[in-house]
Simulated scan of single mutants.
Amino acid sequence: MHSIKDIYLIRHGETIYNRSGVVQGSGIDADLNELGQRQAEAFYAHYHHLELDKIYTSALKRTHQSVQAFINKGLPWEQHAGLNEISWGVREGRTPNSADDTYYRNLTKTWREGNVHVQSEEGESPIEVLEKQKPVVELILSRPEEKSILIAMHGRAMRVLLTHLFEKPLHRMDEFAHQNLCLYHIQYDYKQGKFNLLKANQTDHLRDLPESM
């Protein structure tokens, strides 16, 4: 059995909602905007040489579009709703306003204080997101023959996942920074049964892109 699995974990590229400061969550299935497409192209240009065995994405198309160039190479691809973004509930997709900003600020503060079971209004809690992710993680680890994989997912969901992989308390998820089309390079050591972090929030591949378009 191959003892090391390379995991390239990315957040999706920018959407019009990201650009406008609108919360998407799992209920908004947005396309990448022009800059997001450029980010995906830049990521592919930088990492197309990777000898990947499988691509994993969420069920939302912004993750599919972020790795479309790899999919077009004919690489095996699976999408899992367990990798979807958290549901932010009734406020998803709404034009930014001070009341919602305050609500989100208070909600994330509640989570940082350890109350990770608290749901967004008609949405999900971080604990619920983690419970959906765990079977996907188990599935991925049950395939040691996949020595190198690419996973495309979402900001808050990534933070939840990273706390799980690195055995951190869930309320510390905000310690894992992210940007659109950032990369975390992780290795799983089957012999030791642990994950090692090699790169965090890496964006060197985006260096030549404008901040907005």
Rank of each mutant, 00 (worst) to 15 (best):
D6N: 15
I7M: 11
Y8W: 13
L9I: 01
R11Q: 05
H12Y: 05
G13W: 02
T15Q: 06
N18Q: 08
R19Q: 13
R19W: 09
S20T: 10
G21Q: 04
G21T: 04
V22L: 07
Q24M: 14
Q24P: 06
Q24T: 02
G25P: 11
D29V: 02
A30F: 09
A30L: 08
D31Q: 11
D31H: 14
E34S: 11
L35G: 05
G36R: 00
Q39K: 05
E41V: 07
A42I: 06
Y44G: 01
Y47W: 06
L50D: 06
E51M: 10
E51Q: 13
D53F: 02
K54V: 04
K54H: 14
T57S: 13
S58N: 03
A59D: 12
R62H: 06
R62S: 05
S66M: 05
Q68I: 02
A69K: 05
N72C: 11
G74P: 10
L75K: 00
Q79D: 11
A81C: 10
G82A: 09
G82F: 04
N84A: 08
S87L: 00
R91D: 10
G93Y: 05
R94H: 14
T95Y: 11
P96M: 03
N97Q: 08
S98E: 15
D100S: 11
D101P: 06
T102R: 14
T102C: 15
Y103W: 12
Y104A: 03
R105G: 10
N106V: 08
N106K: 08
T108D: 03
V116K: 00
V116T: 06
V116L: 05
V116Y: 02
E122M: 13
S125C: 10
I127H: 04
V129G: 09
E131K: 15
Q133E: 10
Q133W: 05
V136Y: 07
E138P: 13
E138G: 10
L139V: 10
L141C: 09
R143I: 09
P144S: 06
P144M: 03
E146P: 03
E146C: 13
K147M: 10
S148N: 14
S148W: 04
S148C: 15
I149Q: 00
L150K: 01
I151R: 00
R156A: 14
M158F: 05
M158A: 07
V160W: 01
L162P: 06
T163V: 02
T163E: 04
H164V: 04
P169W: 14
H171N: 14
H171Q: 13
R172A: 12
Q179A: 13
N180M: 13
L183R: 01
H185A: 09
D189F: 08
Y190T: 05
K191F: 09
G193P: 05
K194S: 14
K194H: 14
N196F: 14
L197Y: 12
L198P: 12
N201D: 14
D204C: 06
H205F: 12
R207W: 09
R207Q: 15
D208L: 08
P210I: 03
S212Y: 13
S212M: 12
